[in-house]
Design a protein around this nucleic acid. Sequence first.
DNA 1: GTCCATGTTCTTTA
DNA 2: CTAAAGAACATGGA
Length: 290
Amino acid sequence: MPELPEVQTVVNTLRPAVVGQLIRAVTLHRQDILTPADIDFPAAITGRSIANLTRRAKRIVFDLDDGNRFYIHLGMSGRLTIDPPNAELPKHTHLILHLQSQDIRFRDPRRFGGIWWLGNNPADDPALGPEPLTLRPAQLARQLSRTRRPIKSALLDQSVVAGLGNIYVDESLFAAGIHPLRIAGELSEEEISRLCKSIKQVLRRALHHRGSTLRDYFDADGNPGGFKKLHSVYDRASEPCRRCKTSIVRIVLSGRSTCFCPTCQPPPRRRQKNRRSKRSVSSVHPGKSP
DNA sequence: GTCCATGTTCTTTA
DNA sequence: CTAAAGAACATGGA
């Protein structure tokens, strides 16, 4: 459920309830949501207080007062909520942090999310690309320059840009007028700077509306996001484009639902999948080389 | 019963 | 060998 705007909204709503608070006790209902698997997580955090709460990519990072850190990833169905201490416990609640007067709960039915212990290593994860809200066009150009994947697939890759997901990639490509099947490494400098600008505009707008609630997403106070009704393409297949009235098209790309306007986002020039040029066909030897 | 889902990672293929 | 495509993970709702 959570991409950058949703994760940031969870952080924003959670932060005032947790920063400076003592973790008095911890209830862990399943050990298998933890990485590394053998960490004694309750022992490591009980009695500590939370010094800071931040977001990196789609991760919610807890800084403890002893310099240790861990992060929670919400996966597809994860939620972090603020609850009164004795409120009824919904299914799939895996972790409860008992603070001074409130509980923080992590609930995740599909369990694609989890908790990662970082210890006191301050290094950023080298597998994560730059943050999209501070992305510069030259950075984006460098990240895209050496891949021949479709731009949609490249933007979903967290090592290219960290924090976008299926909704905001589609929305950003629409805003930039770029077809999802365009080859990432073939975008012009002008298209890349337009894309860079569009990504930031879309994310800022989504943040202003506290993210998109399709079904599962709610912030730490239990409120849904309001951005879904402002989507241009995502989850709008066969509805009219808000800009030109053309029917929005849905295809599957990288195994993910992909929505776009075939008029506002012109298709790539020629080049279909599974085509080989005459030269590359004739250069392939039919038998084994000596 | 079927298909689909806001994500990531491992495996297979080209 | 590397890059990219595909499968797998687990649960619930339409």
